[in-house]
């Protein structure tokens, strides 16, 4: 590691924001599972590391009926995995969390970190996207909220400006009768980045939402595809059709992890499996 940084652990948000605004080459440290790799590989040159784990608002992890779920920026992924309310209210988020990296890393990696790192293949964004997650950002100009689907601007890039940091991500209460699932394909069963990950959700009103990762420079919410699906009756036939149609909505690349062709095929398979599972579940209840 060539970086020679100072370490700061602020005790209130103002202090953190001021520091981040004032100091160039400042980086926010939460779980560190991405930041430490960047530092080790000398991909960034940090002069200041701001550890946010001392800020009380970052530790928030709460579900309020009707209002929804708030996940603070220092909440680690395993906390979400273990959460009963996430398991029942947001199954796709539970599954995505449980499939992220390894158990060891999930003890440190944070949900918000997975967003802020803005990796195209991040597991959590597809699940968060289908729940219309909103990102709460603090900055020199005060607080602002950005819908997650507008948060990513490119590979490893977000809307965050200098001095800004994410406090939490917030998910509305999906209400009763909501169903979701996250499916991923990887190169092995053990910890791996997703080759493709697809979150599928059927809302209480029967409308479908689809989030996907590793098929574009950023995780995506497939609004156009959703619209087309929602024009149809949601049955197995529509599911088969959607599994083909999705290939028109994504443009994956070939890289060291997978060919574009396999990614396209897996997006199709995972969407088909996800939606099939959800409509079968509906039938069971019906």
């Amino acid at each position: 590691m060539l970086s020679r940084f100072k370490y700061l652990k602020p005790h209130n948000l103002n202090e953190a924001v001021q520091y981040l605004e004032k100091e160039e080459k400042s980086f926010v440290l939460a779980g560190g599972t991405d930041l430490m790799i960047l530092l080790r590989r000398n991909l960034i040159n940090a002069e200041h590391i701001v550890d946010i784990k001392g800020l009380p608002e970052m530790a928030e992890f709460e579900f309020i009926d009707g209002a929804g779920l708030t996940i603070g920026a220092s909440v680690v992924v395993n906390t979400v995995v273990d959460s009963e309310v996430v398991k029942t209210k947001y199954p796709a988020l539970h599954q995505a969390s449980a499939s992220l990296a390894s158990f060891l890393l999930r003890n440190r990696a944070t949900v918000v970190g997975n967003i802020c790192n803005a990796s195209p293949g991040a597991d959590l964004p597809p699940a968060l996207l289908v729940y219309d997650a909103v990102v709460n950002i603090a900055g020199p100009q005060g607080m602002r909220q950005v819908p997650l689907h507008e948060f990513f601007t490119g590979v490893k890039r977000t809307v965050l400006q200098r001095g800004e940091l994410v406090i939490s991500v917030q998910l509305p209460d999906p209400g009763d009768g909501d169903k979701s699932i996250y499916l991923r394909q990887a190169r092995l069963r053990g910890h791996d980045l997703a080759t493709v990950g697809v979150a599928s959700r059927i809302k209480p009103d029967g409308k479908v939402a689809i989030g996907i990762c590793a098929v574009a420079p950023t995780p995506l919410r497939l609004f156009a595809l959703e619209e087309k699906i929602n024009e149809r009756e949601l049955n197995q036939e529509t599911v088969e059709w959607a599994a083909e149609e999705i290939k028109q909505h994504i443009h994956p690349i070939t890289d060291v992890r997978s060919s574009a062709q396999y990614r396209l095929q897996m997006a199709s398979v995972l969407l088909k499996r996800g939606l099939s599972h959800l409509i079968t579940k509906e039938d069971n209840h019906g």
Binding site: D51, L105, R108
Partner: peptide, 8 residues
Amino acid sequence: AVTSCIIL
């Protein structure tokens, strides 16, 4: 249990 190589 945590990986101490990527913790300051």
